[in-house]
Design a protein around this nucleic acid. Structure first.
Length: 416
DNA sequence: TCTGGGGTCCTAGGACCC
DNA sequence: TCTGGGGTCCTAGGACCC
């Protein structure tokens, strides 16, 4: 059985850990520059304040209801998240998939009767050791577990286990189709146009028909609603393929100089993230745009891709490349609202680059062969890209990629 | 020389998630 | 005045190769 453990109003709960006096008070957390709302307590939700609402549109409500407002403290939330995940890991023997900063999937292997008591116990331990309240949904598939979790949030016990078909269908019948995990605004609109309004109707739809008109992932959702698991637990997620750092500016920026400073800063943050996962990037994309919320002003958006000569994690090199990209994108005379960088074509540090030692003439063949052996043994054959000998040089390998310059032929390597 | 099928790789854009 | 900051996956279409 899959269970999903989801922190309730996570950012708000983190703030409350250090402000217990706000326990039953309305609390919200705002994003960058206090622009819009990114987390709400139940009290704030009950006031009808929407996720993502611009702060300035709800000033009167904040005053009237004395809502406590916090600016997001991502360092704190990241730290609290790690604590919660650690407790979950300690308490469950099954594999853990950290799905987001505030959610984790866990596979439970307990007997059906024990599922809810075990979850209730986990919930109280997490609360006790971290101060964070969580809800837990349990079912045969991830999609059903998510639905169970949605319901669990409304219960004082905070735990729901869906096991018998009858109660599952009962729940699906009252669940609007757009609340199903993976059904967003666009798909919901189309489904409703086809007369499919509830999760139950989606479950009964023909997956082949759904795939033809929507996508393969949408068809998978149908199967998952039927109790056929299509989304396995991923306990060992791959390193990030893209790393993005971007911000909206507090005020509009016109000068290239100011933009360059912002872009350099974002690049260094992105390089830190890259370093943390031990990666090297081969491409950096710079983008910038004006404020789409001010359509009366002239609008401009651009992005520029700058390939790196070779994969790098070096911040200075990345910043230099980002600045070159910015020079290409930048146009004078606009009020810029947001900019960012994306690092991509990421390879693992150990895979992508290393250094060969200088070789003495008489030992050359043996040592080169040793290097080739190590590479072939470690990474599989056909990964050799370039080998050098006789002098200290760097070598490169391309992951799973054929290149006109690759070879594993001993004679070729000797020639190189 | 012409034609076509089968396959891969890359890119852009859409949709979705938290 | 003031409108978040990350990510992933899939699809379609074009280029290219055999």
């Amino acid at each position: 059985m899959f269970s999903i453990i989801d922190c309730n109003n996570f950012y708000v709960s983190c703030e409350r850990v250090f402000r217990p006096d706000l326990e039953h008070q309305p609390v919200l957390v705002t994003g960058n520059n206090d622009g819009c709302i990114i987390a709400r307590s139940n009290e704030v939700k009950a006031l009808g304040i929407a996720m993502g609402a611009p702060l300035h549109t709800i000033r009167p409500l904040i005053q009237r209801h004395q809502i406590a407002v916090f600016s997001a403290n991502y360092a704190l939330y990241g730290d609290m998240s790690q604590r919660v995940m650690r407790v979950i890991e300690e308490q469950t023997s099954g594999a853990l998939e950290i799905y987001s900063i505030d959610e984790a999937f866990v596979k439970l292997n307990t007997s059906p009767a024990q599922l809810e008591p075990q979850a209730a116990h986990l919930r109280s331990i997490v609360r006790q050791q971290t101060g964070i309240p969580v809800s837990i949904g349990i079912a045969a598939t991830k999609t059903l577990a998510k639905l169970a979790n949605t319901c669990a949030k409304k219960l004082p016990t905070g735990v729901i286990s869906l096991s018998d078909d009858h109660s599952i269908d009962e729940l699906l019948r009252v669940m609007p189709v757009d609340e199903v995990w993976g059904i967003g605004a666009k798909r919901a609109e189309w489904l409703i146009g086809q007369g499919i309004r509830t999760a139950y109707q989606l479950k009964c739809a023909d997956p082949v028909w759904i795939q033809r008109h929507l996508t393969a992932p949408a068809a998978r959702i149908v199967w998952e609603l039927r109790g056929v698991s299509c989304l396995p637990l991923d306990a060992d997620p791959a390193p990030k393929k893209e790393i993005c750092t971007s911000r909206a500016f507090g005020k509009a920026i016109q000068s290239e100089q100011e933009l360059a400073e912002a872009v350099a800063f974002y690049t260094s943050r992105a390089a830190e993230k890259l370093h943390k996962q031990g990666g090297l990037a081969s491409l950096i994309t710079v983008f910038l745009h004006t404020n789409p919320f001010q359509p009366d002003l002239p609008q401009y958006a651009a992005h520029c891709k700058v390939p790196l000569a070779e994969p790098t994690g070096n911040a200075a090199e990345l910043i230099a490349a980002a600045k070159r990209g910015l020079r290409q994108c930048y146009k004078q005379g606009y009020f810029y609202h947001k900019a960012g960088v994306i690092l991509s074509q990421i390879t693992s540090e150990t895979m992508a680059q290393g250094t060969l030692f200088p070789l003495a003439r008489d030992s050359r063949d043996e040592r080169l062969q040793a290097v080739v052996d190590i590479i072939n043994r470690t990474y599989g054959r056909n990964t050799m890209y370039l080998a050098a000998c006789g002098t200290q040089r760097t070598w490169q390998m391309k992951q799973g990629r054929r290149s006109p310059r690759y070879t594993t032929s001993w004679d070729e390597l000797l020639k190189v």
